[in-house]
Amino acid sequence: MIRLENLTKHYGSFVAVDDVSLEVSRGVLYGFLGPNGAGKTTTLRMIAGILRPTDGRVLLGGDDVHRDPIAAKQRLGFIPDRPFVYDKLTGAEFLRFVAALYGQEGDTVDRRVAELLEVFELTSWKDELVEAYSHGMRQKLIISSALIHRPEYIVVDEPMVGLDPKAARLLKDIFRQFASRGGTVLMSTHTLEVAEAMCDRVAIIQHGKIVAEGTVDDLRRQHRAGDASLEELFLKLTGGAQVRELAEVLGHGADGAS
């Protein structure tokens, strides 16, 4: 189980994440939604142990990420939004390096590396330096690296960015299977159709606070939204008026141009 207790993060006087509490059970695929700058990435980076919370704590299967980081992180696979990888390593070397960070080596790792590269269609690139990879290929490599040590929890920030439709579909299937086998996935995404189709539960965060949480049906009921789509619900909760304003601005621009 992933558990956030009163998680708070301040940057100077700016409150990026404000007293967030959340629980993601085993076998659940959980969507973490919110507009740009709402605090999604900060929250996910605190869960991954990259940022230290100002207050509150993160528990991964009972282990506190910041008090007992080694035990907690051993169970975690993190996929960031920006695929920074060592440019001068080959794809296969990178995966072996990541496995080593989790204390794994030998034939089992070699087989796992070959398997993952095959699944993500990177086998023919395995001995190329990462600097020659496209953005999508790097993203696939990072996803592979998060799976190399067979984690119990996957925390993923914008998983679909840069992926071609085939890889995006593959990733959805992987996450679904992972959750159905008892794994836990917490993912932030802007692709609301994906969240609606894939996620068992969602949370919507705005200005660092959770403004809605539950299944999509729960949210519809809570906000009396009838059979509205998740996109409509999201806009209602996070300021759809801005979207209308944007449409107006674009409309004026187009008028001006014509």
Partner: peptide, 13 residues
């Protein structure tokens, strides 16, 4: 720096 996401999210001491 750019790879700290990996090093800090892994159980590397």
């Amino acid at each position: 720096g750019r790879h700290m996401w990996l090093l800090r999210s892994s159980p590397l001491d």
